[in-house]
């Protein structure tokens, strides 16, 4: 697949690869996809006391555009409130990375991963209260 420069850049220099402790109360973890489909994304967010995402990490099993989409997603969520992060659309990711049509599902997965991580954090915080 001949990708655009932005996918290549994120693939070759992925931002925010890594993991947080998924049991920590300020960390939300989203794992989406399935191995038999060829892509699994784990995206984690860490929030400060005001509910602003101060850091994000990812690990992805998937093709070049899946890795690039998750790398971009971690960059975009940083500094946003949870509500703001929920406004990130897969179409924005696909547009930013100039993903070819057959790779749109990678951006969908990245959006799903953001939502899953936020849901996880919200559930944790509800339980705590």
């Amino acid at each position: 697949m001949a990708y655009g420069n932005k996918v290549i850049d994120h693939f070759e220099n992925p931002r925010n690869v890594g993991s947080f402790d998924k049991l920590a109360s300020d960390v939300g973890t989203g794992v989406v996809g399935a191995p038999e489909c060829g892509d699994v994304m784990k995206l984690q967010i860490q929030v400060d006391e005001n509910g602003v995402i101060k850091d994000a990490k990812f690990k992805t099993f998937g093709c070049g555009s899946a890795i690039a989409s998750s790398s971009l997603a971690t960059e975009w969520v940083k500094g946003r409130t949870l509500d703001d992060a929920l406004k990130i659309r897969n179409s924005d990711i696909a547009h930013e990375l100039s993903l070819p049509p057959v790779k749109i599902h990678c951006s969908v997965l990245a959006e799903d991963a953001i939502r899953a991580a936020i849901n996880d954090l919200k559930e944790k915080q509800t339980v705590k209260v």
Partner: peptide
Amino acid sequence: DLSTVNWAGGH
């Protein structure tokens, strides 16, 4: 064991 994980769904 990855085969025992209930995956959230793929594409």
